Amino acid sequence: MTNTESIPFDYSPITERPKITWPGGARVAAYVGLNIEHFLVGRPSTSIWPGAANLVPDALNHGWRDYGVRVGIWRTIESLDRHGIRASALLNSDVAEHYPQIIKAGLERNWAWLAHGRTNSILHTDMGLDEERDVLTDIVDTIRAATGQQPRGWMGPGLTETFNTPSLLAELGLDYVLDWTNDDQPYRLNVPGMLSVPYSVELNDLILFGRGLTGPDFLQMVKDQYEQLRDDSEHSGRVMALALHPFVIGQPFRHKYLDQALEYLAAQPDVWLTTSDEIAEHYLRADSQVRPS
C-alpha cells in the first residue's frame, strides 16, 4: 500500500446518480450520531473557555466535558428510549475501560458501535503506515471485545484521517467512514468496499451551541433540515444525520429541545429512523445490484 496523498473519492453531482430507495418507501433515512468520548486530564481538548485549556489540571474545561459521561448521556438515553430511537454510538475505545456502564446501556439497547479513535484528546494524524495500522487494530479490537460486535464504521476524533486510513480500515473489516461531510447520500470511496456515509458538522450541537444558538434555534433547525431533505428526496432518498455530544445537548436547559426534536422526527410518516450501520448496509446491497459486474 502506498500513500497517494489524494482525497479518496471522485466528484459526483447528486443529480447524476442512480435512484436511492429506502425501506418502506421512506424518503429520508435519519440517524443520531451519539459521540461517546474520553478526554485526557492533562491535554488540551474541546473547550468551552479556551483561556484555561493549557492549564494542568484544567478543571473548568475537563469538568465541562466530563459532565457528558457522568450526567448528560443518561438524560439523552432517556429521550432516545422515549421515542424508540437506537443510537449510532461514535465510541472512543478508551470509553470501554473508563465508562463500562455506558457500554452496558448501549448493549441493552442494541446500539450500532462505530470506532471513533482512542480518545478525543488526540487527533488521528501524523502517523506512518505501520504505526497507524497498529493504532487502528488496537481501537477496533478494543471495541469488539467490549461490545461483542465488529465495528463497521469509523469517525476520527475531530473527523481526522490520514491518507491511508480508509484502506487500513478496509483491511480491518470496516466498510464506511463519516469524516467527509460533503453529501446528503452515501457514496463509494476509491477504496474497494468502502463508503462515505453522511454526517454533519452543521446540524451538530457542539458547533451550533458554540456559536451562541439557543435550544429553540436547535429545534427549528432540526425541523428545517428534515423538511428540506424530504423535499429534495422526491426523486431519490436522502440521509439526515443528527450529531450529538452529551456534554453539550445533555445540559438541563437544552434537553427539552432535544426531546422535542426527537419527538418531531419520530412522528414523520416518511422517515426511516435507523442507524448509520443500516444505512451503509442498505446502500451497499442496493448499489451492488445496479453496478455492472
Rank of each mutant, 00 (worst) to 15 (best):
W111Q: 04
T119I: 00
I122W: 07
V135G: 01
L129R: 11
R118K: 14
E108T: 10
A96H: 13
T137P: 00
R133W: 09
G106D: 14
G128I: 04
L123E: 12
W111H: 05
L114T: 03
I122S: 07
N110Q: 15
G106P: 08
D134E: 15
M127V: 00
E131C: 01
D134M: 08
P100M: 05
E132S: 07
T119N: 10
I102G: 01
R109Q: 12
E97M: 06
T119Q: 03
I103N: 10
K104L: 12
N120R: 05
L129W: 07
I122Q: 13
G128E: 09
A115M: 13
L136H: 09
P100A: 03
D134F: 03
E97F: 09
A115C: 14
D134T: 10
L114V: 03
D138Y: 11
D138H: 13
H98M: 12
I102W: 04
R133G: 03
I103Q: 09
E97T: 09
G117N: 02
W113T: 01
W111S: 05
L123C: 06
P100H: 06
L107E: 14
H98G: 00
L123A: 13
K104R: 15
L129C: 01
E131F: 02
E131W: 06
V135E: 15
V135K: 15
P100V: 04
N120F: 02
H116G: 02
L107M: 15
I102S: 02
Q101P: 00
W113F: 12
E108C: 04
I103C: 05
N110K: 15
E108Q: 15
G106M: 07
L107Q: 15
D126A: 08
L114N: 07
A96R: 09
M127E: 10
A115I: 04
L129T: 08
R109H: 12
L107G: 08
E131N: 12
E97Q: 13
Q101D: 14
D134G: 07
R118D: 11
G117F: 00
M127Q: 13
Y99I: 06
E108L: 09
T125M: 10
D134Q: 15
T119F: 01
R109C: 06
A112H: 06
T119Y: 01
A112S: 14
G128V: 06
L123F: 11
D138K: 14
L136F: 04
D138V: 01
E108W: 11
K104I: 12
G106I: 07
I102V: 15
W111R: 01
I122M: 05
I102C: 02
G106T: 10
G117Q: 03
L129Q: 09
L136I: 02
I122E: 10
H98W: 14
A112C: 04
L123P: 01
Y99L: 08
W111V: 06
S121P: 05
L129S: 10
I103R: 06
T119G: 01
E131G: 04
T137G: 12
L107Y: 10
E97H: 09
W111Y: 13
I103E: 12
L123T: 09
S121Q: 02
E108V: 05
E132P: 01
G128T: 11
D130S: 13
R109G: 11
M127A: 08
W111A: 07
T137V: 02
L114Y: 08
E131Q: 14
E132L: 02
R118M: 03
T125A: 10
R133C: 01
N110P: 03
H98L: 14
H124V: 00
P100G: 04
S121D: 02
M127P: 01
